[in-house]
Each structure stands twice: as C-alpha cells, then as structure tokens.
C-alpha cells in the first residue's frame, strides 16, 4: 500500500514549507516507520526525534498527525495523505522537532536554580 506524508518543514524565524513524500507500507506499520523510510530513501535531512522506536517509552515522537497531537510510533500509516506538523505550542527547533525537555534539564536553563 502507498501512503503520502505531507510534512511541514522549516526552522524558527523562517517561512515553513510542506514537502510530500510517498512511502510503500504494509498494514500495521507506524507513522514513525514511514518517517524513517523517508529519511532512508528520500531525504536524510528531515528532522524528527525518537529514541525507543517502537515501545512508546521515550515519548519523544509526539507531533501533530492530521491535526491531532499523537505519537508517531503508535499512529498507523494509512492509504492516502497524512499531514504531519510540529507541536504548535512548543518552540520549534527544526521540521517536526520542538523543544520538549523540561526547563531545568536544558543547557540554557537559568543557572541560579538549585
């Protein structure tokens, strides 16, 4: 089956664009599987974050999937177009990646705390 991923891309302070990629998939595969195929087969510069791949343990792959906040590792690929965008209420870093770390676990946190 064929899925079409319409992905919002860009960096802070720049106009975003939408790139569309087609990926072949088998039923049951996740949106994250699809994103990894895009990087491998089309564009390695596409930015999204994850670490656990499949277990829904790291919670890093949260994004907007067809307008709803969801995890790319548990949402399934479907035939037709799926739109992907970064979380709207977090600071954008690049493409589908936003700043999700707790404030006191960042390099730039204010140094006087603790």
């Amino acid at each position: 089956m064929k899925a079409s991923l319409a992905i919002q891309r860009g960096q802070p302070d720049a106009t975003s664009r939408v790139d569309i990629f087609a990926v072949e998939f088998e039923p049951g595969q996740s949106v994250l599987d699809g994103l990894r195929m895009v990087r491998r087969d089309h564009d390695a510069s596409l930015a999204f974050r994850f670490s656990c791949i499949n277990a829904n343990a790291c919670k890093e792959c949260m994004m907007l999937i067809d307008g709803e906040v969801d995890y790319a590792c548990t949402a399934r690929l479907k035939e037709g177009t799926t739109t992907l965008a970064p979380l709207p209420k977090k600071a954008l870093i690049r493409d589908l990646v936003t700043e999700i770390a707790p404030p006191d676990e960042r390099l730039d946190r204010s140094p006087q705390r603790k």
Binding site: R49, S51, C52, A57, C58, E60, I100, E105
Partner: peptide
C-alpha cells in the same frame, strides 16, 4: 536525548 527516557532501562 531526554534525561531518564532514552537508553535501555526505560524499555
């Protein structure tokens, strides 16, 4: 990655 969420332990 994030503190205490990457690696193997959490898995």
């Amino acid at each position: 990655s994030l503190i205490g969420r990457g690696g193997a332990t959490v898995m």
